[in-house]
Design a protein around this nucleic acid. Structure first.
Lengths: 219, 219
DNA sequence: CTGGTGGATATTGGATCCAATCTGCTATGG
DNA sequence: CCATAGCAGATTGGATCCAATATCCACCAG
């Protein structure tokens, strides 16, 4: 048995994780400056690991950096949003194209299990759980393409809109729609139908971009 | 006149720039570990800005990080190379699709000027100059798409293979080929022909992937 | 009232120091 | 001879302290 120990991560890693959480919960709101001293104290670390973590998030576009002025939580413009979704369209299609012919039965089982997790979280009205389960569902598929760079880029693109996407799951009709679309995608995967899978993913994504756009413009 | 002052950058920024240079020159060779103490001293800074710089390069995939074991300069596997070029294919096509209809005459002038710079550097046998001029040439086009995220990702993909690509310019027949292909691309741009531009870029890229692959496998 | 100047304060940038962890060698027992 | 425990040195991780820079506001000249 390969005991996968829960190694105590470094402070930097812990801070990265925690900052991501603060970003999706909106605890660090878009546009707000990052005060290092206060934030470091709040997280129980010094500013050094915090600054390393911020450099990572800067690379992902989650925060922006200005010399001697520090970091600001990124705001998503509509242009930026359009760009993110266009790139997702191109890259997700590629991921699916490569992944579907490689899908093992075990992959399908895992993906459908993740789909059930989304549904369960939806039933419970657990928005956070739904968000992570939804992400797992999609990235189980993307990762099956065995293209690590592609997966990483896609994760970055998803991260960029995570803050805004959570509102999507808030509407119960949206939730129903999601489950339906996941079922359609899963069906396409089971029959190893690349074209249908890409189409299903595209439709799914288009619904989400619409929701995020309204969330973004009506602020 | 907008006096663009040469502001003294922060140590972290300077280190990032210098590390990039060390990476493309092979001074930091793929696979070699990064000894922070020695490197920091060599650059005349403390380890703090060096570590921040390394986190940035880690995000770009230029170095890899292992907890408590530090950073190692990334090695490009053939799989990785294939992935990089496949993603370039998808994203560069998109960039050109969007950019070409938006190209102003001034853009064309700038691009053709950059093309001349590549030629000049080629005549002089200035490999480093050719590399940067070549990069400028292509990114003038890509940036014209006005999709900053896309540009950034493309830059990352180019960076990942820069070390290996320099060998491409070493061969004088390759250099002639590059100039020829640049002319073809430029011609397509001048007639605002998206399809031909994408094709020219694709052929250009395919030549380079072939060269980089041999450089990678024959080591 | 406007524009600019100077300085006090807040904030970030970076160096140094110490703690935590890893690595490699050596000794010791089987 | 091999395996393992443990120690010493090397290396990274993180906290603290001081320097450099930006921001803000009071003040003054025009």
């Amino acid at each position: 048995m390969t005991a996968t120990f829960e190694r105590p991560p470094t402070a930097t890693e812990a801070v990265i994780t925690e900052l991501r959480r603060l970003l999706v919960t909106g605890d660090l709101a878009p546009g707000s400056p990052v005060r290092q001293e206060a934030l470091a104290e709040r997280l129980g670390v010094s500013r050094v690991p915090l600054r390393e973590a911020l450099k990572v998030l800067e690379g992902e576009g989650q925060v922006q950096y200005h010399r001697h002025r520090g970091y600001v939580v990124s705001e998503l413009s509509v242009d930026d949003l359009v760009e993110v979704y266009r790139m997702r369209e191109l890259l997700e299609a590629e991921a699916i194209r490569v992944a579907v012919p490689r899908l093992t039965d075990a992959d399908i089982v895992a993906i459908s299990s993740a789909s059930r997790d989304v549904d369960d979280a939806g039933q419970r009205g657990d928005l956070a759980g739904m968000t992570t389960a939804n992400r797992d569902f999609h990235f189980l598929l993307f990762d099956a393409a065995a293209m690590p760079r592609l997966s990483r880029m896609l994760r970055g693109l998803w991260d960029a809109t995570d803050v805004y996407r959570s509102v999507y799951f808030a509407g119960s009709d949206n939730r129903a729609c999601v489950m339906h679309e996941h079922a359609a995608l899963l069906d396409a995967l089971e029959s190893r139908d690349v074209r249908r899978a890409i189409a299903a993913q595209a439709e799914h994504r288009n619904h989400s971009v619409a929701a995020v756009t309204t969330a973004l413009t009506s602020r």
